[in-house]
């Protein structure tokens, strides 16, 4: 059984819950009292992850940490279609890795601003916000032209990849860090597409679409 060391309000934990829901992979949650308990910084948790952060995945004794590494593991092991992490196509795989790296940027800017505003982290929030806007501008341009080229996801595949899931929560919760998305109409449409994926689950601040509402067209 997969066990996910998890905190409900963590974007990086949510990325794992979302992928496992989309892949219909059963798992158990091991709640970590991230806030206010700082349990991830406790000596006990240090034995699971010496870096002292979540998420951590334990799949029958195989332990892997870091959001993107866990996404790579889950998609490679549990997606028989090989579309979420397209290992068979070198170019597509490279672009997936490229956009996974991009998500490190959105996490370190947009989600950092959220931690500042929500949990009082001591970050230079204006720098975080400016950095997020720089990335969102690039993402919106990429997705806007994608719509005109018939590409609906960040990578040129008819199927979304784990890169979409790695970026999505940072963007979808950006307003909790004071980062408006009003200038990014193509990003907002892409978010609608992610939310309409069959099996999609939300988290506090990210709602699934109405059970019956049809997906966006265009």
């Amino acid at each position: 059984m997969i066990r996910l060391y998890d905190w409900e309000l963590s974007v990086n934990c949510y990325k794992q819950r979302l992928l496992m829901a989309l892949l219909e992979v059963p798992y158990e949650i091991v709640p970590v009292d991230f806030f206010p308990g700082w349990e991830h910084k406790s000596p006990e948790f240090g034995r699971i992850n010496p870096l002292g952060h979540i998420p951590v995945l334990d799949d029958d004794g195989f332990i892997v940490r870091d959001a993107n590494a866990i996404l790579v593991y889950l998609a490679t092991r549990y997606d028989p279609t090989r579309t979420w992490y397209p290992v068979a196509d070198p170019e597509l795989l490279a672009l997936t890795a490229q956009w996974l790296m991009f998500s490190e940027g959105t996490t370190n800017t947009a989600s950092a601003a959220r931690l500042h505003d929500g949990l009082g982290y001591d970050f230079d929030v204006e720098a975080c916000r400016a950095g997020a806007h720089r990335l969102f501008r690039v993402l919106d341009e990429h997705l806007w032209f994608g719509e005109r080229e018939g590409r609906h996801w960040v990578c040129p595949s008819p199927h979304p990849t784990i890169a979409d899931l790695a970026i999505f929560p940072d963007v979808a919760l950006s307003e909790e860090g004071g980062i408006s998305r009003v200038d990014y109409p193509a990003v907002r449409r892409w978010m609608d597409r992610v939310r309409h994926l069959p099996g999609f689950v939300g988290m506090p601040g990210i709602s699934p679409p109405l059970a019956t509402s049809p997906p966006s067209v265009g």
Partner: peptide, 16 residues
């Protein structure tokens, strides 16, 4: 306040 293309079906555009 938006491009016609922005207002795709079943979507809500945010504008100021």
């Amino acid at each position: 306040v938006a491009a016609s293309d922005d207002a795709v079906a079943h979507h809500v555009v945010e504008a100021v």
